[in-house]
Amino acid sequence: MAIEVRIPTILRNYTDGAKAVDAEGATLDELIANLESRHPGIKDRLVDQGALRRFVNVYLNDEDVRFLGGLGTPVSDGDTVTVLPAVAGG
């Protein structure tokens, strides 16, 4: 089994158009590293200087990972990780 990662429209150019892809890891950080090995370039859109980008929301199942443990959040098989760019502006 693996962890399903749901990809927003704007990042689907890294996943050949797929809305959801599988990845593996014990923490969100490892999961993103694994995702990067399968879909090169995607990590830079999610992480900047060792932290999640401020205007990218990442959810583990139904929770925003900012309220869990950020990149250190443990993940396990069967979880769903959802990436959504924040909707924001001035």
């Binding site: 929301n57 959810y59 139904d62 925003d64 900012r66 959802t82 959504l84 924040a86 909707v87 924001a88 502006g89 001035g90």
Partner: peptide, 22 residues
Amino acid sequence: MENAERSPTFYRFDSMEQFRVW
């Protein structure tokens, strides 16, 4: 949507509300 920033110069969707709506 709620403007989580409640600001006259900035807006941002509340992240949990956005998750539910999306």
